[in-house]
Design a protein around this nucleic acid. Structure first.
Length: 392
RNA sequence: GCGCAGGUGGUAGAGCGGUCAAUUACAUCAGACUGUAAAUCUGACGCCUUCGGGCUACGGGGGUUCGAAUCCCUCCCUGCGCA
């Protein structure tokens, strides 16, 4: 079980400071939840993830079900022991894979609306549309294993059962992450399924792991409101907010504002899959306590370092991002970020990391992943400080 | 010195009379990435352009042909073998 205590509420915004107590320790919210899909923060050991100030991680039901299978994880003594992570853990339910391996794969798009979709207007997903490799039914979802093509079925009961075997502190209800480019009619159909599944998840859940329900409804105000009311009424321990969150930061803020008033205030709220640096303060001010995002780790493996401002214009892809693949950095003897206290910035120079990237050395990814996580976690720490000091 | 095999864009390496400014890979440059099928994907990559096209290119020189990176002659260079 978890206990969530709100320590401070901002007078200036919806932001709040909380303490989330789990069987594997306490964490302070708001916090980033770095992604450890396959029971690992890619390229790092669990000790390193801890040293990068990660408080809690999220692993994935679908991926762990495929590899190594939940039985293996369970027989290792649960996911904490399996991966040697002594802090809190979550598992995502596999609901995102309904989208990412389904319509997301077919259309080559992410879950968030983008202006570039304008040219893709023909690809609208209407009421009874089905993705190519995934079959979505009222009872659950038939996947084709990306590993060997074999069919596997995951519905709400299956997802909960797998998550119970994996043994994270917090688990999520099985939902359908809805695709952008879909009609309201499709979202309505999908939302009914997600709500039915939510009830089944509650009913079939047997352990004392915390179970979070997921609010869907895409970018439709009435559907977000309806979803929030229903999910709130079912007695979950906390909430996830998923699906499309609009094209702009303003849209995201608006959509969160349609949802949160309907959710029991004392329970934690997790925004699923959002967390670029420029998003963080906005979503926290909207009242979000937890948010997971692949950006720090994923971008790190692509050669991108997140940094404080104040860099020469030529070096910046965009403000706060450094692309170490660029040859100019081979001659750059500064640390990734001169204001960063992480061990990478204390011990290594841009020149060396750029060299490692060009040489195809995996250590480049390790160093960048570590730095990025440290950078994000420090950034969120500062956001918490701002709330505590009444600044936001 | 003789014999054989070669010399193609930053590199490797295709092409072997027209559809070749030249397959492909790597390198380079630019861009993307938000509950991770992701150490990935996309685009550019001779020079100039009023975007129609123009110009210079496949070791050097000379030829054959309507037309040559592709055929012939010659010179230079490289590798291997024999002296």
């Amino acid at each position: 079980m978890i206990k969530f205590k709100i320590v401070k509420k901002s007078k200036k915004s919806g932001a709040r400071i909380g303490i989330l107590k789990t069987p594997h320790g306490e964490i302070e919210t708001p916090t980033l939840v770095p992604v450890a899909t396959q029971a690992v923060v890619k390229t790092l050991t669990s000790e390193e993830a801890e040293a990068a100030k990660c408080q809690i991680l999220i692993a994935n039901t679908f991926h762990l079900h495929l590899k190594p299978g939940e039985k293996i994880v369970k027989s290792a003594g649960g996911i904490h022991k399996f991966m040697n992570w002594r802090h809190p853990l979550m598992t995502d339910s596999g609901g995102f894979q309904v989208f990412s391996l389904g319509f997301g794969h077919d259309l080559g798009v992410g879950k968030i609306s983008a202006p570039s979709f304008g040219k893709n207007k023909d690809a609208i997903i209407d009421k009874n549309a089905q993705p190519k490799k995934v079959k979505i039914t009222s009872g659950g979802v038939y996947f084709k294993s990306p590993i060997d093509g074999r069919e596997l079925f995951i519905g709400p009961r299956e997802s909960i059962k797998i998550q119970e075997a994996i043994g994270a502190d917090i688990i999520f209800a099985f939902d359908e992450c809805t695709p952008p480019l879909s009609t309201k009619s499709y979202i309505e159909t999908s939302l009914r399924r997600t709500h039915d599944w939510a009830k089944i998840c509650i009913a079939s859940h047997k352990t004392n792991q915390a179970l979070f329900g997921i609010v869907q409804g895409s970018k439709f105000k009435d559907l977000r409101g309806e979803s929030a009311r229903i999910i709130n009424s079912l007695g979950f321990d906390g909430f996830g907010i998923g699906g499309d969150l609009g094209e702009s930061k303003a849209d995201t803020k608006k959509i969160i504002s349609w949802v949160l008033p309907h959710l029991e205030e004392s329970k934690p709220r997790h925004l699923l899959g959002i967390g670029k640096i420029e998003d963080i303060e906005n979503i926290v001010k909207s009242g979000i306590d937890l948010f997971d995002c692949t950006v720090p780790t994923h971008y790190g493996r692509r050669g991108i370092a997140f940094v404080s401002s104040g860099l020469p214009a030529v070096a910046l892809a965009k403000a706060g991002k450094l692309n170490l693949n660029k040859s100019v950095f081979l001659k750059d003897k500064k640390p990734l970020d001169s204001k960063c206290a992480c061990s990478v910035c204390q011990n290594y120079k841009r020149s060396y990391i750029a060299h490692l990237l060009k040489a195809g050395e995996i250590t480049a990814m390790r160093l960048l992943t570590f730095h990025n996580l440290h950078f994000f976690n420090t950034y969120v720490e500062k956001v918490r400080e701002k709330i505590k000091n009444g600044l936001i």
